[in-house]
């Protein structure tokens, strides 16, 4: 059997649905979608997505693993909760979308260069370092994500805002040297590690 045929045979099987149920937050509700399309019609970002939630759920049931996990759709969700409110089958669509994004990210299948994903990564890495977000390094990191030239350009454009914040004592320039941490940084790191361990166990990841 050719590969293409192999794919076809695997389609519309329960394998991927089961994988989603096991690994994605509230993934067990995906099978309850009745394909009415109310979510697709309710999403304010609808036209900007590759696939609507309705399609994502059908793709999961159709076993389109690669396409679902590499879709940018889940990353475009702004958590407005319109779909959850309107879903006649009470699917926690927003949660499922975030769960899918998280799962795709962990597997490394999420789209490369997706701005939401990149910013999320930046934010998380910044946060776990000191237990609090360092606004200065986060901002600088964000400005320079596309290279030095783009970073300088954005930095200069935002110069007035930055200086204004320094003047109003909303921004401490000294934070650029690492910044201050939460009181019990060691305890914080232990807490995050434990949480990750629990999640990995729950979702069946091997760290």
């Amino acid at each position: 059997m050719t590969t293409a045929n192999q794919n076809a045979v695997e389609r519309y099987r329960n394998n991927f649905l089961k994988e989603v149920e096991a690994n994605v937050e509230e993934g067990d509700m995906v099978k309850m979608c009745m394909q009415c399309g109310v979510c697709a019609g309710s999403c304010p970002l609808g036209p900007h997505w590759e696939h609507s939630p309705q399609k994502i759920f059908m793709m999961i049931r159709a076993g389109k693993r690669e396409e679902v996990l590499s879709s940018d759709s889940m990353w475009m969700c702004t958590s407005c909760y319109n779909c959850i409110v309107r879903c006649p089958r009470q699917l926690p669509i927003t949660h499922i979308m975030h769960g899918l994004a998280n799962y795709a990210h962990r597997l490394g299948l999420a789209p490369k260069g997706q701005p939401t994903r990149e910013f999320g990564t930046l934010f998380w890495n910044n946060l776990v370092k000191k237990g609090r977000v360092n606004e200065l390094t986060l901002t600088i990191g964000h400005y320079f994500k596309d290279g030095i030239a783009a970073g300088i350009k954005t930095g200069l454009a935002m110069q007035a805002v930055g200086l204004g914040m320094v003047k109003a004592k909303r921004l401490n320039p000294m934070e650029i040297f690492g910044g201050h941490a939460v009181k019990d940084l060691k305890g914080f790191h232990a807490m995050v590690a434990k949480a990750q361990e629990i999640e990995a166990k729950k979702k069946g990841f091997t760290a």
Partner: peptide
């Protein structure tokens, strides 16, 4: 659906 019947 709960039982996993796929509706397409």
């Amino acid at each position: 659906q709960q039982k996993g019947v796929i509706f397409s």
